[in-house]
């Protein structure tokens, strides 16, 4: 098990590095046309070693260091992602669990079909429809995520609900589906039957035996969805004119601001690697078999 962990983690780092690598080719194409052509690896190395030292280079457009922009944007994006995650993880899991406990009854159908339909829709489509409903017709929520300066925590939260909702909807379907199938499998297992036959109360069986096993695949899915979430952020931040890492990358790509673009993407790669690491950690907390393996 430890060996397996060791195999998986370098893979994640490789993935993180590949972001800027693919990007470097794009840079190279432009360098060709500009005539500033250094060998790929040399460029890449000098850039990555600067990055590690905290120097992200200078923005072509703003003529100032990239780092403050990236850090601000990352902070904003994390706020948005946090709101979406805090909403979706418990509600998604709850939805899946409720669906599984009502297997093939109307409630299960509603949750499964509803989850499936909102998951397959592009974020900007659900975003537009939500803006129309809550922002334009009901006027409950602001249609832009740009809160007034010096806004307090709750004001910021108020501005973030609408942008977080499309992300919530897309992730809800995935998480609920995984939680549902995990639950069904666990409910059907021998250890659940044993627990029931032992005479344990149904509540205890669900909490102590079923949930723990059912949620493990769900956690992996949540972690893999971080990569997806980042793609979603690019769209949502554009739609809501929110100054996050997604809109930073989008603007940098449009303006061909390569240092900004590269730093943005490498930052995303790092976030992705960290998220995977956290998922591995959570997985081992939930699954005692991995911990046992480590001790032996």
């Amino acid at each position: 098990m430890v060996f397996l962990g060791g195999q998986v983690l370098p893979g994640n780092v490789g993935r993180a590095i590949l972001g800027p690598f693919a990007d470097q080719r794009a840079v190279d194409a432009l360098n060709h046309s500009l005539g500033v052509d250094r060998p790929l690896l040399v460029q890449y190395w000098s850039w990555i070693s600067n990055f590690v030292q905290g120097d992200m280079g200078t923005s072509y457009i703003f003529r100032s260091p990239v780092a403050p922009f990236v850090i601000d944007a990352l902070g904003n994006s994390l706020k948005l992602a946090a709101v979406a995650f805090v909403l979706v993880v418990p509600i998604g899991i709850l939805g899946g669990v409720v669906a599984a406990l009502n297997l093939n009854r109307p409630l299960d159908r509603i949750i499964s079909l509803g989850g499936l339909s909102v998951t397959v829709l592009p974020e900007f489509v659900t975003g537009i429809i939500l803006i129309l409903i809550f922002g334009v017709w009901l006027r409950w929520l602001p249609i832009s995520a740009a809160w007034p300066k010096d806004a307090g925590f709750f004001t910021q939260l108020y501005y973030l609900i609408l942008p977080a909702l499309p992300l919530f909807l897309v992730l809800f379907g995935y998480i609920a589906r995984m939680a549902r199938s995990g639950m069904i499998e666990a409910l059907d297992s021998d250890y659940t039957r044993t627990a029931v036959l032992k005479g344990l109360p149904w509540r205890t069986v669900i909490w102590r035996h079923v949930l723990r096993n059912a949620l493990m695949p769900t956690i992996t899915v949540i972690a893999t969805q971080t990569g997806y979430l980042i793609g979603g952020l690019v769209v949502i931040e554009t739609l809501f004119r929110y100054q996050g890492i997604g809109s930073l990358i989008f603007t940098a790509a449009r303006g061909k601001d390569f240092p900004m673009l590269e730093s943005g993407i490498l930052t995303i790669g790092i976030v992705y690697a960290v998220a995977t690491l956290i998922a591995d950690f959570l997985y081992s907390v939930l699954n005692p078999r991995i911990r046992l393996g480590a001790e032996q």
Binding site: G14, D23, A26, I230, V234, I249, I265
Partner: peptide, 19 residues
């Protein structure tokens, strides 16, 4: 292939379209 799958399509597209 796994490395490719880890990058969101939107990001790949942004880069390809810049290039």
């Amino acid at each position: 292939l796994e490395a490719f799958m880890a990058i969101p399509v939107v990001i790949v597209a942004l880069l390809a379209i810049v290039a």
